[in-house]
């Protein structure tokens, strides 16, 4: 008679090999990226102050290479792991239902939750453009890029309306992504409560909208002529 209760088969899956582990990785990296987005937005909103403020802010960051590179490496890792996990999960999902339904209805899922796999890559594409646009300045159609004048880079960059439009579309995608992701990360990490989770969901919606609105306010202000180059 074997007294063994639950015996794990040989070659047990490691944490990062299971769907639950991968989702936990996505949740943690998602949280890191969310933290960055909040900080980034708060910093960027200085664009509404006199130009010296944001330029000074940028110069301060660059004067602290340990912090800057620490953050950059962390973010790069987080983005990498977030994408790596989601890609692997996407492969699993593709395999899990080889024959599709002729008819399929959705009962209570949100549009945002079902389109995470679309909003994600769009945000990635935007991110790459955004880095080329404002960090490296290699693609900056609005005029010359001056790495010491963040204020002007932003304003001239957004004066090109297709760029602003892309930016706004990407921010709407980010809103959707956060709309679901912000509470979903708690579920993935094991927190759910009949009272607090609904509040968390409401909070996630609010934060997602605030972040998108805050970001979008910048190109809109530029296009509306509220913020002008100096």
């Amino acid at each position: 008679m074997s007294a063994t209760a639950v015996s794990l088969p040989a070659g047990s899956l490691h944490f990062w090999q299971t769907t639950v582990g991968k989702k936990a990785i996505m949740a943690i990296t998602g949280f890191i990226l969310f933290g960055f987005i909040v900080g980034h937005l708060l910093g960027n909103l200085q664009i509404f102050l006199p130009p010296e403020k944001i330029n000074h802010y940028s110069a301060t960051l660059k004067s602290l290479p340990a912090l800057l590179w620490g953050a950059r490496i962390t973010l790069l890792l987080a983005v990498g792991l977030h994408i790596w996990s989601s890609f692997q999960l996407w492969l699993l999902q593709r395999d899990a239902r080889p024959i599709k339904y002729v008819k399929k209805a959705n009962l209570n899922s949100t549009y945002a939750s079902r389109t995470m796999l679309w909003s994600g890559p769009i945000i990635l594409a935007f991110l790459i453009f955004h880095l080329l646009h404002f960090t490296f300045g290699t693609v900056h159609p609005g005029g010359p890029f001056d790495e010491h004048n963040v204020y002007n880079n932003v304003v001239t960059g957004f004066q090109v309306w297709p760029v602003s439009l892309f930016y706004i579309v990407a921010m709407i995608m980010l809103c959707y992504h956060l709309y679901h992701g912000l509470w979903s990360m708690f579920q993935s990490l094991g927190f759910s409560h009949p009272v607090y989770t609904p509040w968390l969901q409401r909070f996630a919606k609010l934060v997602a909208i605030l972040i998108a609105a805050g970001n979008i306010s910048i190109p809109v202000a530029v296009l509306a002529g509220f913020i002008k180059p100096v």
Partner: peptide
Amino acid sequence: NIEGFANCTNIGE
């Protein structure tokens, strides 16, 4: 996971 069920995306269907 061995059975081939994919992951949960917390959508609630």
